[in-house]
């Protein structure tokens, strides 16, 4: 564990907290993409299958990972529940039209071609890595459709992007300290994912400088 990894994870937790805070305080999920949340649910549930096989108290790291995995899975399920049941009437269904079945299909095909070992576990893990790299697209697409972005929604995406950026620093760190090289799958997809946020970062920082609400072109 290094400071970049820990910082990245903490930003991830903050982003989830902001998302739930936004829904609970405004009693609305307007501007949020249910499709992105569903994709994250799929990502977490295909990647964290090792929860069934790993002893949480094996080491401090496995304990930490187990807590975080359960947190991500449960908060993701809760968010979907809030959007689909309790605040369903505020959900912007008309604009949230990104076709996620194509993303899922593409991630599945890529996972079948590129994986570390030919096992169900490894292919699902690769699938989750591919899918995570594009999971934010429906959310960005929705914001682009509606134009102006609520502050808290932009903070949410900013934190998620920050988490990915810190993970890249974490990989650079691990590359030099642990000399592990065979990480092309996670590194490649993680970089693509960070690049997807880069465009959003640009407009976010522009809007901060001008002290205005974020507007996407």
């Amino acid at each position: 564990m290094n400071i970049f990894r820990l910082g990245g994870d903490m930003l991830h937790v903050v982003s989830i907290f902001l998302l739930l805070l936004k829904i609970q305080t405004s009693h609305s999920c307007a501007g949020l993409s249910l499709k992105t949340q569903i994709l994250y649910m799929v990502v977490f549930s295909t990647r964290y299958l090792d929860l069934f096989f790993t002893k949480p108290w094996h080491s401090a790291l496995t304990f930490y990972n187990t807590i975080m995995k359960i947190l991500f899975l449960s908060s993701s399920a809760y968010t979907i529940y809030l959007m689909q049941k309790r605040y369903k009437h505020t959900y912007d269904k008309v604009h949230d039209t990104f076709r996620i079945q194509y993303l899922i299909a593409a991630a599945a095909v890529l996972a079948l071609i590129f994986h570390l070992r030919l096992t169900v576990f490894e292919i699902l893990w690769a699938f989750s890595v591919f899918l995570e790299s594009v999971a934010i697209l429906p959310q960005l697409f929705l914001l682009q459709e509606t134009g102006e972005v609520e502050n808290i929604t932009s903070h949410y995406i900013f934190c998620l992007g920050g988490y990915r950026t810190l993970y890249i620093f974490n990989w650079v760190w691990r590359y030099f300290t642990e000399h592990r090289r065979n990480q092309w799958l996670a590194w490649g997809c993680g970089t693509v994912q960070t690049l997807i946020y880069a465009d959003f970062f640009y407009y976010y920082i522009l809007s901060r400088k001008q002290g205005k609400k974020l507007r996407l072109p």
Binding site: H12, L61, F72, L116, N170, E178, R180, A186, W187
Partner: peptide, 10 residues
């Protein structure tokens, strides 16, 4: 295993 380090991340 040496190549598994991405698996101990989230």
């Amino acid at each position: 295993a040496q190549e598994e380090s991405a698996k101990d991340e989230l």
